[in-house]
């Protein structure tokens, strides 16, 4: 038994999964608005509370995962969800801050829903300043300040967005909070 399997998942797997999903759904429907997730009581090293909650709620044996957090986190996710490890280019969920948006599976023109979901852990998220987001889900524009994304993210984002309907959806995580960037959203630097 590896160490990861000794740690608990959600305290209430049914209702916590539902609440976490609803927060992700709200985040994806209203890009840039910050949502709070129920978090598991224990975490393996290398994975933040919100990122862990997203995976516990949504991953399973049908969703290969690329996890940069190490063997213990991998074993923990595997134990609680059944999801197996995969290279970034083949994964449905990617939690790897080194993974480039353009290196992940964007789906196909006919099956864009196969595009990956990138879960990015960042230093902080706040609304009201920073990036200007616009697109479906946003009435006019929405401001979101994100600290700790890698250089070149916005250039990659613009290139990824140009492939719509193919593309990668991003969930930004900081602590127990998330904000989502569905693939079609336009981002302007603030």
């Amino acid at each position: 038994m590896s160490a990861g399997t000794a740690l608990a998942g959600f305290a209430d797997p049914v209702l916590d999964s539902q609440a976490a999903f609803r927060a992700v759904l709200e985040a994806m429907s209203r890009p840039g608005r910050i949502q709070r997730l129920p978090v598991p009581p224990e975490l393996p090293p290398g994975i933040g509370p919100a990122a862990a909650a997203v995976l516990l709620a949504l991953a399973d044996a049908d969703t290969p995962i690329r996890l940069a957090a190490g063997a213990e986190a991998q074993a923990w996710i595997r134990f609680h969800t059944g999801a197996r490890a995969a290279p970034a280019a083949e994964a449905a969920f990617v939690l790897d801050s080194d993974a480039g948006l353009l290196d992940l599976d964007p789906g196909t023109e006919e099956e864009p829903e196969r595009g990956a979901t990138l879960i990015l852990e960042v230093e902080s998220l706040s609304e009201g300043s920073g990036w200007r987001l616009s697109g479906p889900g946003i009435q006019a524009t929405h401001r979101l300040a994100v600290a700790g994304v890698r250089d070149g993210f916005l250039a990659d984002w613009a290139a990824s967005r140009a492939r719509f309907p193919r593309g990668v959806d991003v969930i930004l995580c900081a602590g127990d909070r998330i904000a989502a960037l569905p693939r079609g959203i336009a981002i302007e630097e603030g």
Partner: peptide, 24 residues
């Protein structure tokens, strides 16, 4: 059951990300 919900939830999230596209 929970695994069915999980599969449907993932389909819903992709459907929201690609407005108007039918997700199987």
């Amino acid at each position: 059951d929970e695994s069915t919900k999980r599969m449907i939830r993932r389909a819903i999230l992709k459907a929201v990300a690609i407005p108007g596209h039918q997700v199987p």
